[in-house]
């Protein structure tokens, strides 16, 4: 039997995030981006672009890509993988799960 040892925090309601969009949440001094994909799955990454640490909150979500609002660096928010410059470093991703109408983020 496996035990879930992660620390899950309640970050938002399902309806706080529109389809094909993201919101920014903060916890314990860290910033996270919570995404809702076109097929209604939730994902989470670090809240700042790896290029110049710009907040991704005002970025554009298109399909499974988040584009940084400052220089258009693009990442696959499901894996954190860089899709195009100017970013060269992948985004850190975090686990999320849906419980009822709430979204939980693994921070531990």
């Amino acid at each position: 039997m496996t035990t879930d040892t992660k620390t899950w925090i309640d970050v938002c309601a399902v309806d706080d995030v529109e389809i094909e969009d993201l919101i920014e949440v903060s916890h314990d001094g860290n910033t996270y981006a919570i995404y809702r994909s076109p097929d209604d799955t939730f994902h989470a990454t670090d809240g700042h672009c790896t290029h110049e640490k710009v907040s991704l909150a005002d970025g554009l979500v298109m399909d499974y890509v988040i584009e940084c609002p400052m220089h258009n660096a693009r990442f696959d928010y499901r894996t954190g993988e860089v899709k195009s410059a100017p970013a060269c470093v992948n985004l850190k991703t975090f686990e999320v799960k849906r419980e009822g109408d709430r979204i939980l983020l693994a921070v531990g």
Binding site: H51, E52, M70, H71, A85, P86
Partner: peptide, 10 residues
């Protein structure tokens, strides 16, 4: 151009 222009916007 893209790298130079990114700097211009920053």
């Amino acid at each position: 151009y893209r790298w130079r222009h990114a700097r211009h916007h920053t």
